[in-house]
Design a protein around this nucleic acid. Sequence first.
DNA 1: ATTTTATGTAAGTCATAACTTACCGTAAGT
DNA 2: ACTTACGGTAAGTTATGACTTACATAAAAT
Lengths: 112, 112
Amino acid sequence: MTYIKSDPEFDQKWVALADPTRRAVFQLAAGKGKSVQAIADQLPVSRPAVSQHLKVLHDAKLVSVVLKGRQRFYRAQPAGLASLRRWLDEYWSEALESFAIAADEEEENKND
Amino acid sequence: MTYIKSDPEFDQKWVALADPTRRAVFQLAAGKGKSVQAIADQLPVSRPAVSQHLKVLHDAKLVSVVLKGRQRFYRAQPAGLASLRRWLDEYWSEALESFAIAADEEEENKND
DNA sequence: ATTTTATGTAAGTCATAACTTACCGTAAGT
DNA sequence: ACTTACGGTAAGTTATGACTTACATAAAAT
């Protein structure tokens, strides 16, 4: 078995959130929902850059849009984080449930 | 406020796990701990590539190493996922605690 | 109707990241 | 001692991604 199980939707979410600027966009869009301009105003990048980031986030289903006249209100969609959370928990829980690991950890870190 | 709060250690973890191959490396190193060769054997990339991925993961404190003779056993360190989990939960919980959002969601997705 | 305002998108630049092959050091086995 | 196995690292290639400025479109305001 020399291949990697690929899940494009899942990968997209990781890639989308790996960029700090894009993560900031996501955070700014959390809660209330903001126009592109409003988001760009709070960031050190151009307005088109924000548009591009929003496209990536939208494709990854991490934000939703509402059209209001000539404005577009983007809002973070926390539900889109579900698969990432599940992945993390899969490995996270290993750490908690196993005392054996904690014990070995010390042994290992001597040569680390 | 036109800057982004930067946390290099935190960013590193995101970047490290955003790559599918590197995520596969991390997963293969979960639980038992494997030699570089053993990991490379299960992936469609070269052994040096795996070494490079492991360096990134190690720098991000997502794996630990144990030296045993000429082998190096790498093991995933779930504790390294803590900060990511906390970040996710911050936005994840918003979704769960607020019924208002769920209601608005429908309204919004009409124009989506 | 003309002019703003809000946004998307195209085109170009530049840095970086994910590979590869080649090479080096070092521990084990003979 | 010599050879083989393990793994890090250097160098080079290539794709991609995060920006920018310039342009295009459509709704609102005058």
